[in-house]
Simulated scan of single mutants.
Amino acid sequence: MLLPNKHALGCKWVFKLKYRSAGTLERYKTRLVIFATKNWDLFQTDVHNAFLHGDLEEEVYMKPPPGFSALDKAKNRKDYSLFSYTRGPTRLHVLVYVDELSISSNDPTLTTKFKAYMSQCFHMKDLGILKYFLGIKVSRAQEGIYLSQRKYALDIISECGLTGSKPFDTPIEQNHTLGKDDGPLLDNPAQYRRLVGRLVYLIFTRPELSYVEHPTRVVQYLKGTPGHGVFLSSDSDLSLVTYCDSDYNTCPFSRRSLTGYVVSLGGSPVSWKTKKQQVVSRSSAEAVYMAMSMALCEVKWLKELLLTFGVTHSAHVAFFCDNEAALHIAANPVFHECTKHIESDCHFVRDAVQDGTISTHHVFSEEQVADFLIKALGRQQFDYLLRKMGVRDLHSPS
């Protein structure tokens, strides 16, 4: 409601195509797996003109833009960048990022009508089949969808002046401990921050960059693997599988452990994370159990998001862990009374096991996909887990 004695300015939608590293793009992979499996076409449009940027010191009130109420009704409450239309078996989904729209539907006629309607409301440009999204190349075949940032990686290598450098086999030296790096530093802090920011964005299609330390070595690793990306298979039953692990007391300064997890949808990787835990664990089992709790939060979010696409998961989600003590805690929290300080996590994971949301399974360490997110592995094991996760190079001969 407008305040007394205030006047609201009118407005209209005004956009410009921009490619930025900010955003919640990790959620995009889940939708692409759905579209690939259901064999839906993917289209892309963009809206012309530009946002006005600048410092605003005055107090300004503005009326809601045209179409805001209709869009708000279609907005997905689990992800505000996703808008969905459902009527009976007919579905249409629109992903919005600034001025770019990615459109997919199981009804080609509905897609055509939607694009025509949007062109009447805004100055639109139909870019056809989705090929690039925020600098991410989308390659589609009958087998599935391949996401790659090859050009982006090559630009990073060139900008760092390492085009002629010798490639490294892994992004971090085997058995390297975080916080112990004594290599040369970059002279320009701004250059360092820019490089780190670009590498963070590259993790969208390069999960193996989640656990690194020295950025120069990472760039030299990219030199040998610029075309690596994730493959989202169309041959999928859309079941969720999770691998989670922890590196106990790995931080030399705080003694906190690292959490690492990978969630796949029908065998395709859709979510992964490396994160330092918030508290110090008193055992490796506790550290792994906290990792399970974090992964469970992600799985519950994904299950709710997938309902938007008509995908339900009545069966339990398989959780693979290589720590048997942590599995015992999940099955019976009385097994370790010394874990009272993580009681909320205990009940959170235990309840999910008891109500059938998840089922826990032991996996040998050699098969633990999450390991390369939290440990400095040798080349053979690193490459094996990378292939197992579904990372490949479309540009290399098979």
Rank of each mutant, 00 (worst) to 15 (best):
M1Y: 10
M1E: 13
L2F: 05
L3M: 00
P4S: 13
L9I: 12
V14M: 07
K18P: 03
G23R: 05
L25C: 08
K29G: 00
K29R: 15
T30Y: 06
V33G: 03
F35S: 15
W40E: 10
F43G: 15
Q44H: 10
T45D: 12
N49Y: 08
A50S: 11
A50P: 07
F51Y: 14
L52R: 09
H53F: 07
L56S: 02
E58V: 11
G67E: 01
Y80D: 12
Y80Q: 10
H93R: 09
E100T: 13
S105A: 07
N106C: 01
P108Q: 03
T109L: 11
F114V: 12
K115I: 11
Y117A: 11
Y117S: 11
M118P: 01
M118R: 01
M118W: 03
Q120P: 04
H123K: 11
G128D: 08
G135L: 03
V138N: 10
E143P: 07
R150E: 13
A153I: 00
I156Q: 08
E159G: 08
K166V: 12
K166L: 14
P167S: 07
T170M: 06
Q174W: 10
N175E: 11
L178S: 10
K180Q: 13
K180I: 12
K180S: 14
P189E: 05
R193Y: 03
L199Y: 02
Y201H: 09
Y201E: 00
Y201W: 03
I203M: 15
L209K: 11
S210V: 00
Y211F: 09
F231S: 11
S234N: 12
D235Q: 15
L238Y: 00
L238T: 00
L238G: 02
S239E: 15
L240F: 05
C244T: 09
C251K: 02
F253R: 12
R255N: 08
R255C: 03
Y261D: 06
Y261S: 06
S268G: 06
P269I: 05
S271G: 03
V279M: 13
E286A: 05
A287D: 10
A287N: 06
V288F: 13
Y289F: 15
Y289W: 02
M292R: 09
M292I: 06
M294T: 08
M294Q: 04
K300H: 07
L302V: 07
L302H: 07
K303N: 08
L307E: 13
S314D: 14
S314E: 14
H316E: 11
V317C: 06
C321H: 01
D322N: 08
E324P: 00
E324D: 07
E324C: 09
A325P: 07
A325C: 03
A326Y: 01
H328I: 01
A331L: 14
V334D: 14
E337C: 13
E337R: 14
C338T: 14
K340R: 09
H341R: 04
V349C: 10
R350L: 04
Q354L: 14
D355L: 01
I358Q: 04
H362A: 12
V363C: 11
V363T: 04
V363K: 04
L373G: 00
Q380Y: 06
Y384R: 12
L385C: 04
L386W: 00
R387P: 00
M389C: 10
R392N: 00
L394K: 08
H395Y: 00
S396D: 14
